[in-house]
Computed example of a mutant assay.
Amino acid sequence: MTGEPGIDDPPWRRLDGPKMLLAVYAAVAVIALLYAASTSSVAFGAYNAQWDGSGDMRAVASENGSAVTVGTNVSQYPTTDANGTVAFVLSPGEPYTRPEVDRIERFVRAGGTLVVAEDYRPHANDLLSGVGASARVDGRPLYDTRNYDRTGAFPEVTPTGPSPATAGVETVVFNHGTVVEPGDATPLLTTSSYAYLDEDGDGELDDDESLASRPVATTEAVGAGRVVVVGDPSVFVNAMLDRGDNRQFARALLGPRVLLDYSHAGGVPPLAAAVLALRRSGWLLALCGAVLIAALVGIDRRADERLREYVRERRSPADPGRLSAEGVEALLRSRHPDWDGARIARVTEAVMSQRRKRQRDD
């Protein structure tokens, strides 16, 4: 009998095997749900901690001292006092609507910087055209036969000359990127003269594919702002930031304020979206704060009552006057194992009756 949980044992000692298993399962399920609601597997996603996510970009911007905003709507682009704000668009998975493009164009022309990184999807070129930039992403796979990291699909590219956008950068490593047709823009990064565009996608240099140095990143003025185009969004993903000088390149592009535009990148996790909504809405944040305070007050009262009861029971476990009916019955059984059930029930009822009478007298 001494090995069995009793009335004076803590709550976890009172759980039998099935209940304990259920409690563990419930805890694991809650943790899994919270993790799923706060993370994402979307490529280039801000809340994707895997190799193809861009969660580390937020850390890079924060370490740089930039004020970081994770954008879920183009309404977050400032159209006044945009100077000093740098917005990043990494391989949008959906096209921007005309009103959305107009909003981003006003941001750029008001002095903002727009960084568009793309390789094969078509939506970036539509955005570039809409905001008035002349550079375009080519879309054909880029290889280098001599200057690369691991394989020719990871070409090493270098700055074309001094520029604030490439300050401290010697080599940037691409990952299955493409080239940028500059138009009227100024090239920032270029391949070696051993690079080629894989026209047929076979990963081999064919007779109709030529070696040449090609631009892979550009910058150009649009209104009072500028547009930077990079032919590979993978430059900014978690696994690539530590290759070459990719991290320094990301830092060089940052400004005092950074907007990471994920409005067309597949969305953000529910929990992260809720947090972002709270940050943007003062009245919603106040409402949630009031609800939380009320809940904490209620929990505190219940916890206080349970604590007092627990202290009363633990103060003198052998005193029947401080035990519940079940506790009195358990105590009587341990002290008088020769008593039958009926007698124990009568004595227990008598003890409880006396207690109730004392409480009324008090």
Rank of each mutant, 00 (worst) to 15 (best):
L114M: 06
R136F: 12
Y148E: 02
H176E: 15
T145G: 14
D119T: 13
T171P: 05
V116A: 00
G177V: 06
G168N: 09
G139I: 06
R121G: 04
N147M: 06
V116Y: 01
Y143N: 07
T171N: 03
N175D: 14
V116G: 02
S134N: 08
T113Y: 00
T160Q: 04
D138W: 08
N175L: 09
S129I: 12
A165I: 07
L128M: 10
D119W: 14
F174V: 09
G168V: 07
V173H: 09
E156G: 05
R136A: 11
V172A: 04
T160G: 05
P141C: 01
T160R: 03
V131T: 02
G152I: 06
R121E: 13
P162S: 12
Y143D: 03
F154S: 08
A135F: 12
P155G: 03
D149N: 11
T113P: 04
V172E: 06
G168F: 06
N147C: 11
P141A: 06
L114Y: 05
D126Y: 12
R140S: 13
D138H: 10
V172L: 05
G132I: 05
H176G: 05
S129G: 11
G152E: 11
D138E: 11
V137N: 01
R146V: 15
R146Q: 15
E170T: 11
Y143A: 08
A165L: 07
E170R: 09
Y120M: 02
P155V: 07
E170P: 00
V157N: 02
V172P: 00
P164G: 03
L142E: 14
Y120I: 09
